[in-house]
Measured scan of single mutants.
Amino acid sequence: MQIFVKTATGKTITLEVEPSDTIENVKAKIQDKEGIPPDQQRLAFAGKQLEDGRTLSDYNIQKESTLHLALR
């Protein structure tokens, strides 16, 4: 499925993911596309910060959802 990640600079990244993917996997995909190390990424959805060990389906993130990326 496709999801979107909006960066602090307003850029939107499109990612191909599975509901079973962990947040860690998603951060690795962002690193592949943007070169941002996962340990510098903070992802949020619906106002909640997402934890590495959880999956997209844990957070009820569905196709075409938009996550927000902040850098630490």
Rank of each mutant, 00 (worst) to 15 (best):
M1F: 09
M1K: 02
M1I: 13
M1E: 02
M1P: 02
Q2G: 06
Q2C: 04
Q2K: 12
Q2I: 09
Q2D: 11
I3Y: 01
I3D: 00
I3V: 10
F4R: 05
F4K: 15
F4C: 03
F4N: 05
V5L: 12
V5T: 02
V5E: 00
V5I: 07
V5N: 00
K6S: 06
K6F: 09
T7D: 10
T7A: 06
T7V: 12
A8M: 07
A8K: 08
A8L: 12
T9Q: 08
T9Y: 07
T9E: 07
T9P: 07
G10I: 04
G10Y: 05
G10Q: 05
G10E: 11
G10V: 04
K11D: 12
K11R: 05
K11E: 07
T12G: 04
T12P: 05
T12K: 13
T12I: 15
T12N: 07
I13Q: 02
I13C: 02
I13H: 04
T14P: 10
T14R: 12
T14F: 04
T14Y: 13
T14M: 14
T14L: 15
T14I: 06
T14C: 04
L15A: 02
L15I: 05
L15D: 00
L15E: 00
L15V: 05
E16D: 14
E16S: 11
E16M: 08
V17F: 07
V17W: 02
V17T: 04
V17G: 02
E18M: 05
E18T: 13
E18I: 10
E18N: 12
E18C: 04
P19T: 11
P19H: 14
P19Q: 07
P19F: 12
P19I: 10
P19K: 15
S20Q: 09
S20F: 14
S20A: 12
D21I: 08
D21E: 12
D21Y: 06
T22H: 14
T22D: 10
T22K: 08
T22V: 08
I23P: 02
I23Y: 02
I23W: 01
I23M: 05
E24G: 08
E24H: 09
E24N: 07
E24L: 13
E24R: 05
N25H: 11
N25M: 04
N25E: 09
V26F: 02
V26P: 00
V26Q: 00
V26Y: 00
V26W: 00
V26C: 03
K27Q: 02
K27A: 02
K27W: 02
K27S: 02
K27I: 03
A28R: 11
A28P: 01
A28K: 05
K29I: 08
K29N: 05
K29H: 13
K29R: 10
K29S: 05
I30R: 00
I30G: 00
I30A: 01
I30C: 02
Q31Y: 09
Q31P: 01
D32E: 11
D32H: 14
K33S: 09
E34Y: 08
E34G: 05
E34F: 14
E34T: 09
E34A: 11
G35M: 09
G35I: 03
G35A: 10
I36P: 04
I36R: 02
I36F: 13
I36T: 15
P37L: 12
P37S: 11
P37N: 09
P38L: 15
P38K: 13
P38N: 13
P38F: 09
P38T: 15
D39G: 13
D39S: 13
Q40I: 05
Q40M: 09
Q40A: 13
Q40T: 15
Q40W: 06
Q40C: 03
Q41S: 04
Q41V: 08
Q41D: 01
R42H: 14
L43E: 00
L43F: 03
L43K: 00
A44N: 11
A44Y: 07
A44F: 07
F45E: 02
F45A: 04
F45M: 06
F45K: 03
F45V: 08
F45I: 07
F45H: 07
A46E: 15
A46F: 07
A46C: 04
A46D: 15
A46G: 08
A46L: 15
A46K: 07
A46S: 09
G47P: 01
G47T: 07
G47Q: 08
K48S: 15
Q49S: 08
Q49I: 12
Q49P: 12
L50S: 01
L50G: 01
L50A: 02
L50Y: 01
L50D: 00
E51H: 06
E51Q: 05
D52R: 04
G53D: 15
G53Y: 10
G53Q: 09
G53W: 11
R54D: 10
R54Y: 11
T55R: 05
T55S: 11
T55N: 06
L56G: 00
L56T: 02
L56M: 07
L56Y: 01
L56K: 00
L56W: 02
L56A: 02
S57L: 15
S57E: 09
D58Q: 15
D58T: 12
D58L: 05
Y59N: 03
Y59I: 02
Y59C: 03
Y59L: 14
Y59E: 04
Y59F: 06
Y59W: 03
N60P: 03
N60L: 15
N60W: 10
N60C: 04
N60S: 09
N60D: 14
I61S: 01
I61T: 02
I61W: 01
I61K: 00
Q62I: 10
E64Y: 11
E64P: 03
E64L: 14
E64H: 14
S65F: 07
S65I: 09
S65G: 06
S65W: 07
S65T: 09
T66K: 05
T66I: 14
T66P: 02
T66D: 04
L67S: 01
L67Q: 01
L67N: 01
L67M: 06
L67G: 01
H68I: 05
H68G: 12
H68E: 12
H68D: 13
L69V: 12
L69A: 02
L69K: 00
L69I: 10
A70H: 07
A70V: 11
A70E: 15
A70I: 11
A70G: 08
L71S: 15
L71V: 13
L71D: 14
R72H: 08
